[in-house]
């Protein structure tokens, strides 16, 4: 678990995705291959703006053990302005969220491995109007 998280830190802490220079498509999480251009893909890292729009969402009442304190919380399907669609926790009150809501990326805690373990950080989203 430790090395697996560590390897992805760069992409979890910040929205660093990849772009295919052949077709212009952006990917997040990053891909080292463009599924459209295939052999002709030309991939490079790209810093995404962190802004996006809520396409759909769920209010989670039945949570995994580590997120018990946070329930109910919002998980949303977010289309980033650069195109990629990602699933992320949306740090706001359940009554605030709505389809089409503008959101922006923030740096938050994902969880921790108990009191003695490491703390996992990464990207979540908040309502963009708030910031």
């Amino acid at each position: 678990m430790l090395p697996r998280f560590w390897r992805k830190i760069r992409y979890r802490y910040d929205l660093i995705g990849t772009r295919c220079n052949t077709c212009g498509r952006n990917y997040y999480p990053p891909r080292n291959f463009c599924p459209v251009c295939r052999r002709r893909s030309s991939i490079e890292e790209v810093q995404l703006s962190g802004y996006g729009t809520v396409l759909s969402y769920s209010i989670v009442h039945d949570t995994p053990v580590g997120l018990k304190m946070e329930k109910p919380y919002v998980v949303a399907l977010i289309q980033l302005d650069e195109g990629p669609i990602i699933t992320s926790q949306l740090a706001c009150e359940p009554e605030e969220v709505h389809d089409g809501m503008r959101v922006k990326a923030v740096f938050r805690k994902y969880g921790e491995d108990g009191e003695d373990g490491i703390i996992y950080y990464g990207t979540k989203f908040i309502p963009a109007e708030e910031a």
Binding site: E70, F107, R108, K109, Y110, Y121
Partner: peptide, 13 residues
Amino acid sequence: PDLDEDTATISVE
């Protein structure tokens, strides 16, 4: 602070 905020997240923001 919210449950998922601490000194590291505040510092980063």
